[in-house]
Design a protein around this nucleic acid. Structure first.
Length: 269
DNA sequence: ACCCTATGACTAG
DNA sequence: TAGTCCTAGGGTT
């Protein structure tokens, strides 16, 4: 579920339902019980996001959430349903209940704690603002362009670019026609610029509804076009063994680090 | 009942 | 590099 687009989408949704309002917090599963008690009955003063990190603000206190590989939120309108016993955090007010399940991180921090987290993150393609983040972007790009690690590894490094995960990595590299195993220092700077612009576009688009849309409509099969608005399609992600939408060659995959890289040898030489 | 997988990331050695 | 943590769904014994 969760790459940067998901987190931004969840931030927006929570801001819409809970922002500026008093809410009740609880932890049916128990592991966030004392912290939930601390924020319960208070106003959610702000919601912020950076990369894959989500922050709920309650004046000086901050709930920091990272969904990890399979954490997610379920929002339900109306009367609060009985929580599953795995619900780490439940937020509710009169008209909405939000249940958090399976996060890798759910903790109570101060503003200082939040800043420490943000400091170790790279540039965020969604919140990037050239007038304030240009120097950071420049520094991180220099790091990429002088590294001997592969561009596939570098794109997933959250201290360089914050928010890209395994799906966007695969799709952005494909869309740039870039081989994943090229060392950063051998990368064409204009290709990196193109991938960055593409990442900004795609993640913002995905953040609108929390869905990854990396395939151009004209590259979908007829059968897929009919359900485009429901489905998640990819050029290469999890399509190993299938035929490339563009060149018809066979999509490959390989384990790199602890994740799987997918690519088309024909289009990404 | 067990085994595997998954859009993540940390720690120990 | 391996092990660990968080959870559910699907497939196989």
């Amino acid at each position: 579920m969760p790459e940067g687009h998901t987190i931004r989408h969840l931030a927006d949704v929570h801001a819409a339902h809970f922002g500026g309002k008093v809410l009740q917090a609880s932890s049916p599963q128990g592991r966030f019980a004392t912290e939930a008690w601390t924020i319960s009955g208070r106003e959610m003063t702000d919601v912020t996001a950076r990369g894959k990190h989500l922050f709920f603000h309650f004046d000086g206190d901050v709930v920091h959430i990272h969904l990890g590989l399979y954490g997610w939120f379920t929002l339900v309108p109306g009367v609060a349903p009985k929580p599953k016993d795995t619900v780490r955090l439940r937020l509710q007010n009169d008209d909405t209940t939000s249940d958090l399940i399976g996060p890798t991180k759910c903790e109570l921090l101060t503003e200082t704690g939040r800043h420490k987290i943000i400091e170790r993150l790279g540039v965020d393609p969604i919140s990037y603002d050239p007038t304030t983040d240009e120097e950071l972007r420049e520094r991180k790009f220099h790091k990429i362009l002088s590294s001997k690690k592969s561009i596939a590894e570098l794109l997933m490094d959250q201290s360089i670019i914050a928010g890209i995960g395994n799906v966007y990595r695969a799709e952005i590299l494909f869309r740039a026609g870039q081989n994943p195993f090229t060392p950063g220092r051998e990368l064409m700077p204009e290709i990196l610029d193109a991938m960055w612009d593409d990442a900004r576009r795609l993640l913002k688009l995905g953040a609108e509804d929390g869905m990854i849309r990396a395939v151009e409509p004209e590259h979908l099969l007829n059968e897929e076009q009919r359900r485009y608005k429901y489905g998640q399609f990819s050029y290469v992600y999890k399509r190993n063994g299938q035929l490339c939408r563009i060149c018809g060659g066979v999509i490959e995959s390989i384990s790199l680090g602890n994740r799987t890289v997918y690519w088309c040898p024909g289009c990404q030489e």
